[in-house]
Amino acid sequence: MTSIIQVRELCNRFGDNVVHLGLDLDLRRREILGVVGGSGTGKSVLLRSIIGLHRPTYGQIRIFGKNLLTLPPPERSKLEQRFGVLFQGGALFTSLNLQENVAIPLMEHIGLSRPDAEKLARVKLALTGLPASAARKYPSELSGGMVKRASLARALALDPEILFLDEPTAGLDPIGAAAFDQLLVTLRNALGLTVFLVTHDLDTLYATCDRVAVLSQQRVIIADTLERVAADPDPWIQDYFQGPRGRAASRAADDDRANPHGDGN
């Protein structure tokens, strides 16, 4: 398997606060990698470092074999069009309505006309489960969960090869979160997406992830299949997966596997 993102010996420091120290991580093609870790362990900073928004204090990051920070701007933009990002806070453009938010990259990069781009934007919004009435609303008029869905639609706008998602299901209702899990897996299977998924949602972890990377003590202490990670003796991991929520999610995932495709497809 080829890894399309390689992080080597990453160090990140803000003043005295060392967030990452010698962090190594690989993202393989067509996999959904779940990244977990306590609050403030640097998951968002890791994501920002990979997509080139944050210059690491030290270390190497290669994405499609290239270092984003040293690329000339046109090539960097080309590369950036190959990934879509959902930020933890949504980061929608507040001056544009939802369909314009999603249509922007389509018009700028693909050169679609505005009506075409907005039509396609509405499809993406529909895919993420937003109602038609939301397409012309502005971000300030939306609920938190709707903002999450709209930013997912924008991340999907260019049908990217890699999706970076920072806590996509936080703020979604359980039905919406389950639909999101299913959408993610469908898209990965059909489009061959690779997904970097930061999440605290154990159900999403069990339902979607091929591998799970655990951030702790300023590095990735383990990145492996869910079963192997859950069996790791590290005390934080044990608390995480064997706590009441972890056990419940694990049971639910087992039930699902025993009775697959409950939705009648």
Partner: peptide, 12 residues
């Protein structure tokens, strides 16, 4: 996989 994609787009 393709069927699943077409189905999910058509449904939404």
């Amino acid at each position: 996989d393709t069927a699943a994609l077409l189905r999910i787009v058509a449904r939404s």
